[in-house]
Every structure is written in structure tokens, then in C-alpha cells.
Amino acid sequence: MTEPLLEARGLTKRYGQVQALQGADFTAYPGEVVALIGDNGAGKSTLVKALSGALRPDGGDILLEGRAVHLDSPLDAQRLGIETVYQDLALAPDLDAAANLHLGRELYFGGILRPLSILDRGAMRRAARTAFAELGIDLRDITVPVGSLSGGQRQSVAVARAVAYANKVIFMDEPTAALGVVQRGRVLDTIRRVRDRGVSVVLISHNMPEVLAVADRVEVLRLGQRVARFTAAESTVEELVGAMTGALAAQS
């Protein structure tokens, strides 16, 4: 197989009495959708936070393209091309889609105006239109506050923001949890499109049929350790659930 893009080796993390990660491994290869599944408390969130820079693990290594990296904040991860779509989306509801897409990375008028940091709204709107179009997201009006958009559209904005800046990996934490059937299908389409652009998508989900539908591979976390890896096309929901609950023997 090709060389891993993002790799966790033996990550440990303890919260007081709770050992959330007990030497957890994780691998994402270039241009794939890999699902990270596990029961509640298996350590999924902790692992994702460690890999996206939101928390520092107590021990273990994180490797990006074979080199050890230290992620002290989400900004460190973003600089390396790793973005996260949070479950709460982390959007500013009063700002429009173009503003949210560029939040923290605004475009300004250049030249002698540059020191004044005047926002170039036209350029941001054009860039936003392009970004949404590339993902096939239909937002009729990118100038209305995202708070007045539907849940699915808000999700699209959050995903598009991550895609616009990630050139290596995107973490998506339960991206379809709050969505209806039609919108759910759209988000899954978007995930495939992102993968086709060569960016790896790490999908955290509880929905097993969905995982099998969209993921290329599945990694299973149980009690803070990776206990199984599957190729999605050759797996069944029963196998995944079995690995999650420990009913099935570990395999790799």
C-alpha cells in the first residue's frame, strides 16, 4: 500500500482517572475516505482532537507524510493543511456564507490600502461562489446570514470552509447527525467530491450503513485502542458492530 498521509502511533491521553487513549493507532492514506468508528467512550473524540491540534496527547507520535509533527493548536494543524468540521459547525450565524468561509482568513484590498485592513468583499464573495460551486453546493444567496439557512446548507458552508483550506486531511465529526435524508445524501456526495480532489477525509460517524456507503476503509476504536481495520467494500454492518463491541476478535 502507499505511504500513510497522517498517522498516529501509540497515542495516550488520561483525563484524571479515565484513560481515554491507551496507545491508540490510526492511519489515513492519501485520497481516501476513512471512517473512524467506536462506541461511546471509545476515545474517538479524544483521538480526533489530538490529530487536529485541539489537545496534546500525553504520549505517542503523530506523523504527517512520515514526519513527526507537534500540533499545539488547531492553527498549527491548519497551517499543515489539516482542517476540522466540528459537530457544532463553528459558524458565526450573523455573518453571511462568504464571511464565514473566510473567517480569520479575510481578503483585503492591497496596495496603499493594505495597512488599513479593508475587507475586499467582492473578492471574498467570488472566492466563496467558486468554492461552493466546486463542491456542487447550491446556496442561492451567499449574502444572507448563515443563521437563516437550513441545517443542511449550514453544514455545506462548514464543509466548504474546511475544503477551501485543507490540502491534506479533513476531519468531519458526525457531519450528518442533524440532517434529513436528502441533505444527508448531499453531504455524503460532498465527501466523495472532496476525496476525488485528493484530500483525505476522516469521517466520525455512528451510522454504520452510512459508513459503509461512503468510506473506503474503516478503523475501529475500542477502549482507547485501535482494534480492527476493514476495507469497506468487503465488510458488513455486523462485522463493524462486532468489532466495536468486542464481540468479534480483533483483526488487522
Binding site: 492553527l75 463553528a90 458565526a92 473567517l103 480569520g104 482568513r105
Partner: peptide, 15 residues
């Protein structure tokens, strides 16, 4: 505006 709208979101994008 961003801070008033969602301070946590602002923080996560590095503001």
C-alpha cells in the same frame, strides 16, 4: 461581529 456572533468559532479560526 464574529466575536459577538460566536466567540468559540472565532477562537477556533485563530482570532
Amino acid at each position: 461581529y464574529a466575536i459577538g456572533s460566536n466567540a468559540e468559532a472565532a477562537r477556533r479560526v485563530g482570532i
